[in-house]
């Protein structure tokens, strides 16, 4: 589904992604871990099309389409969803009105007929129940006055409503208490299917106890330095990142010789 080949990207002239390679197939869940500043959130932003990143090399394909050629809104309509680490507040715009606008754009792009108000409402209720999102939050202004946890849960509710192919969750677990983490994880587990894929960006192994990944990758210094299965996450939890850093720099100095 997603194929990233030798992706390099700069921000303000500084190279931040230094040759990322990643294959994600439908039905898979990939976790990307790594220390602060390793480029995890940058990777998410580049995939979503944030414009302050400059792509200097490499390719990204989504089901055979060149993702890097698309504007952010087209990527979204093609099925890329980013659950933001810091969701923004938009006063006066109701959550529901916003979702209706988004969904109708996506449906137009996919040549689907528009949903009637009744159908939309029915869908809203079902998805709210699925991800345990309170109706009162759905009717409020978009993220306005939401707690950190409520904002994160709203991201998952939106994910449920927009039914993307590829969901990238950027530290969705950060700032969640254990109950909220459980609710968010349950929601995502229910949304998993053979047709969609998830990329979870996280610092902690904790999330992966709830959402079990098929693959775990470690991002360090703009590159994926290690890939494995869920056991890798446990190893990281136990040993931290330092051994990987040392290994990486060791290799680097060897290469220089």
């Amino acid at each position: 589904m997603l194929s990233i080949k030798n992706l390099h990207a700069n921000i303000e002239g500084k190279e931040i992604l230094k040759g990322i390679n990643l294959e994600v197939k439908a039905g898979e869940v990939h976790a990307i871990m790594g220390p602060n500043g390793s480029g995890k959130s940058s990777l998410a932003s580049v995939l979503a099309g944030r414009e302050n990143y400059e792509i200097t090399e490499g390719e990204v394909w989504l089901d055979g389409k060149n993702l890097l050629d698309m504007k952010p809104e087209v990527r979204a309509r093609e099925g890329v969803f980013l659950a933001f680490q810091y969701p923004v507040e938009i006063p006066g715009v109701s959550n529901i009105n916003f979702l209706r606008t988004a969904l109708s754009e996506i449906r137009i792009h996919r040549n689907l007929p528009p949903l009637s108000a009744k159908e939309f409402l029915k869908m809203t209720k079902e998805k709210q129940a699925l991800v345990e999102f309170e109706a009162k939050l759905a009717n409020r202004s978009l993220n306005q006055g939401f707690s950190g946890g409520e904002k994160k849960r709203n991201e998952v509710f939106q994910l449920a409503m927009l039914e993307p192919k590829l969901s990238i969750l950027d530290e969705t677990d950060s700032g969640l208490d254990i109950d909220a983490l459980r609710i968010v994880s349950n929601g995502i587990n229910k949304l998993r299917s053979a047709d969609n894929a998830f990329v979870l960006i996280t610092h902690y192994q904790r999330l992966l106890e709830y959402i079990v990944p098929d693959f775990v990758h470690v991002l360090y210094n703009g590159q994926i330095v290690r890939s494995g299965t869920k056991e890798l996450a446990l190893e990281l939890e136990e040993k931290g990142y330092d051994w990987l850093k040392e290994e990486f720099h060791g290799n680097e100095s060897i290469n220089k010789i």
């Binding site: 979503a48 099309g49 944030r50 414009e51 504007k71 952010p72 809104e73 990527r75 979204a76 309509r77 969803f81 980013l82 933001f84 969701p87 923004v88 938009i90 006063p91 006066g92 715009v93 009105n97 916003f98 979702l99 606008t101 988004a102 969904l103 754009e105 996506i106 792009h109 202004s141 978009l142 939106q158 927009l162």
Partner: peptide, 25 residues
């Protein structure tokens, strides 16, 4: 830009994003 990008990321183009934000305001 963050507000506009957030709406872009949900499939809403910049024109419509501005319209939504301004009408909300």
């Amino acid at each position: 830009e963050d507000q506009v990008f957030y709406l872009n990321q949900r499939g809403i183009d910049a024109e419509q994003a501005i319209a939504l934000i301004v009408n909300g305001y």
